[in-house]
Design a protein around this nucleic acid. Structure first.
Length: 432
RNA sequence: GUGGCCGUAGCUCAUCAGGUAGAGCCCCGGAUUGUGACUCCGGAGGUGGCGGGUUCAAGACCCGUCGGCCACCCCA
């Protein structure tokens, strides 16, 4: 155990894993771009008040999970616990909300929570936000976009879409009263957490994992019956659009979201394959947030997906080759100072001619044998070998390192003159 | 914040009535002088998370603490 460790819940990602992240990030970026979403790069730190106002003062996130500290001028700052508030703030500040906008962002978020599978203190999200369109076709677009993404990532079979409408804040508050009134009759039968939530956040009782509580909820008032007309209409339009587009979904009237800014449509993509933290992507509409944060009243919808969870799911579903990838295509062996010099300049010009080829030159000296061992370990298809003989003859030895023919037959090494090298090397690398 | 399980070489793990630790993998070197993979030989590497306690003696027992995993909570 070394003296210095990463902060609890904050992990390092090495090449063996980061290549999976790159695949995921590239796929997401391409997909979002194909719908006309543009990337915004936002600060990781914001004034604390942005989050307390935006996310809600009573939520667990701002109440006990934020990394909050004073700047040197005594202003309270916080590491962002989610991306929407900052994105909205940025859009207002930039004055771009006079017309509809589609944005996406990616990066680390911070929440002081107990780490477990699929949950870290520093985690990463990619989020998409659409501003300025109040109609449910925008909700549908975001959901279709995410559905397409799961298909492209090869995880569509492992995820399920749940949707709900939580209505306007007025209808929600009517429903909340009805729910509280109902549950108050059975307070003593509720689990401890739910008894607490009855005071703090009654709607949260709906997705309690407690079986007894869920049984009580069987006969509880149904949120859908309390929806205002507009929310109900929009929701049925959304459902119709999803059906027309062939996106399967489950209406879950118990689905509520944790952040205060949501209204009307909410949705979650969930999986049963990741243990307790099964939500890989979630979002909804937040029509009041822009105004709440000081902008002109502008509707918004968005979602955020958890990168760690997606990487886990990708691995779980075998959608990605998780075996370790070679670090090199070509490994360059050179023994002796003269050989090293010739190799160095030759390989530099090779890189100019073959920019996509990964040419790793051996460093640190050593015998032919030890250098060859490194060549083997690197996973390279070909070793280029320079020694005294090659230098004096003006040649280089091209040695195929792996079985490359269907027959399993090995290719013999050959030597070639330096001007021939690009052609010979290309040929050696393209035999598959 | 709560609970369960866990913490021995870089990695995966073992050992023992409590008597001052071992394997496999990895790494390094070698097996006829310039060449990897298989095999063989040799080598390096551990204050047994940390701190207390019990004991003649603790990695093994007890307490604390830190860390990890999973779950609750919460949420992406």
């Amino acid at each position: 155990m070394s003296k210095y460790r990463s902060v609890r819940g904050m992990v390092d990602i090495f090449p063996e894993d980061s290549r999976h992240w790159q695949f995921l990030e590239n796929t997401v970026a391409e997909t979002l771009a194909s719908y006309g979403y543009g990337e915004v790069r936002l600060p990781i730190v914001e004034y604390t008040e942005l989050f307390t106002r935006g996310i809600g003062k009573a939520t667990d996130i701002v109440e006990k999970e934020m990394y909050t500290f004073d700047d040197r001028n005594a202003e309270s700052l916080s590491l962002r616990p989610e991306g929407t508030a900052g994105c909205v703030r940025a859009a207002i500040q930039a004055g771009v909300l006079n017309t509809p906008q589609r944005y996406w962002y990616a990066g680390p978020m911070f929440r002081y929570e107990r780490p477990q599978k699929g949950r870290q203190r520093q985690f990463h999200q990619i989020g998409a936000e659409a501003f300025g369109v109040a109609s449910p076709d925008m909700d549908a677009e975001l959901i279709l976009m995410s559905a397409r993404l799961w298909r492209r990532l090869g995880i569509a079979q492992g995820v399920e879409l749940q949707i709900n409408s939580i209505g306007s804040s007025e209808s929600r508050s009517r429903y909340r009263s009805a729910l509280v009134e109902y549950l108050n009759q059975y307070v003593d039968q509720l689990d401890e957490d739910s008894q607490r939530r009855l005071q703090s956040n009654p709607l949260r009782i709906l997705d309690s994992k407690n079986a007894g509580t869920q049984a009580l909820l069987e006969n509880a008032p149904d949120m859908s019956e309390f929806l205002d007309a507009e929310s109900a209409d929009d929701f049925s339009i959304l459902c119709a659009l999803l059906t027309a587009a062939g996106v399967a979904y489950t209406v879950n009237t118990r689905l509520v979201r944790g952040l205060d800014y949501y209204n009307k449509t909410v949705f979650e993509w969930v999986t049963t394959r990741l243990g307790a933290q099964g939500t890989i992507c979630a979002g909804g509409r937040y029509d009041g947030l822009v105004k709440q944060l000081g902008g002109r009243d502008t509707p918004g919808v968005g979602f955020a997906m958890g990168m760690e969870r997606l990487v886990l799911l990708l691995a779980e579903m075998g959608s990605m080759d998780m075996s370790s990838a070679p670090v090199a295509d070509v490994y360059v062996v050179a023994v002796g100072d003269d050989a090293y010099k010739v190799a160095l300049s030759t390989v530099e010009s090779l890189r100019s001619e073959m920019p996509r080829c990964r040419l790793v030159q051996h460093t640190g000296g050593g015998s032919f044998k030890s250098q060859m061992k490194k060549a083997d370990k690197s996973g390279a298809q070909v070793a280029l070998i320079w020694g005294e003989d090659e230098v004096s003859a003006g040649t280089v030895t091209v040695k195929p390192m792996r079985v490359e023919k269907e027959s399993g037959e090995r290719l013999a090494q050959q030597s070639c003159l330096l001007p021939e090298l690009p052609a010979v090397l290309s040929a050696a690398l393209t035999i598959d």
